[in-house]
Simulated assay, not measured.
Amino acid sequence: MHAPAPTGKANASRLIGLGLLLAGLAYPFGVYLGLEHLSPRLFALLLGTLWLARLCSSKQTPLSYTMAATALLFCLLLGLAGEPALLRWYPVLISLALFGLFAGSLYSGMPIIERLARLSEPELPPAAVRYTRQVTWVWLGYFLVNAGIASGLALWAPLSWWTLYTGLIAYLLMGLLFAGEWLVRQRVRKAT
């Protein structure tokens, strides 16, 4: 038996999510390359449109609603102020929003890491559930450190340093954290 095909609304939600992901990946380079030629209001309009579409396209949990609403408020502030320096704060906002999302999941329902683990293994043993909570705490640390570094770069570093960190190094560190967690998970599985 085949799973039902995704509905049009589900497809739209996935496309918008992909658009936000790609916009997030390209954002630092867009700021670096476009700052002299594009208005911060244009960045606000483009990001705001994606976040508004995200908000309207899928069922929202209170945590994801808060993240989208926070991003929309940032876009509104950026659009009203038109201040180029504000552009550097978007990665900080996203890290803090993800921190809030992960932290909130620890206290309301199932932690995000546990939800992701249950996609491939629906019946997690109690040890695995404890492990996913610990991994969620590790990600909280990453998001806080990342927000701190991005804040420092936004305040005191040249645009090229900010771009290098927020556009490349932060993602490499995230990839290392994913890979490290995967290796630890394999060892934990073998030990149980």
Results as ranks from 00 to 15, higher is better:
38 L>I: 15
169 I>V: 11
159 L>M: 04
114 E>F: 10
73 L>E: 07
51 W>G: 01
191 A>S: 15
155 L>M: 08
27 Y>F: 11
169 I>E: 00
93 L>A: 04
174 M>A: 05
90 Y>N: 00
170 A>P: 01
115 R>M: 15
145 V>S: 08
174 M>Y: 09
53 A>S: 14
42 L>F: 14
159 L>I: 04
187 R>D: 07
72 L>E: 05
130 R>G: 07
134 Q>K: 15
13 S>Q: 14
149 I>E: 00
163 T>I: 04
47 L>I: 12
180 G>R: 08
121 E>P: 01
23 A>F: 13
82 G>I: 12
35 L>Q: 13
50 L>D: 14
168 L>K: 00
32 Y>N: 00
73 L>M: 14
59 K>R: 14
189 R>T: 13
31 V>Y: 04
5 A>Q: 12
17 G>H: 09
59 K>D: 09
190 K>T: 09
168 L>A: 07
70 T>M: 13
184 V>L: 14
12 A>G: 01
131 Y>D: 02
127 A>P: 02
147 A>C: 11
11 N>D: 04
134 Q>F: 06
129 V>L: 09
161 W>A: 12
66 T>S: 07
183 L>F: 11
25 L>V: 01
24 G>Y: 04
123 E>F: 10
135 V>T: 10
131 Y>Q: 10
172 L>D: 00
63 L>W: 04
48 G>I: 15
128 A>D: 09
6 P>W: 04
75 C>G: 04
147 A>Y: 11
169 I>M: 03
55 L>G: 06
85 A>Y: 14
145 V>N: 08
145 V>H: 07
158 P>I: 06
121 E>K: 15
188 V>T: 11
141 G>S: 12
94 I>K: 01
62 P>S: 08
33 L>D: 05
156 W>A: 06
76 L>P: 02
18 L>K: 06
114 E>Q: 15
140 L>F: 07
79 G>E: 03
43 F>V: 11
150 A>N: 03
60 Q>F: 00
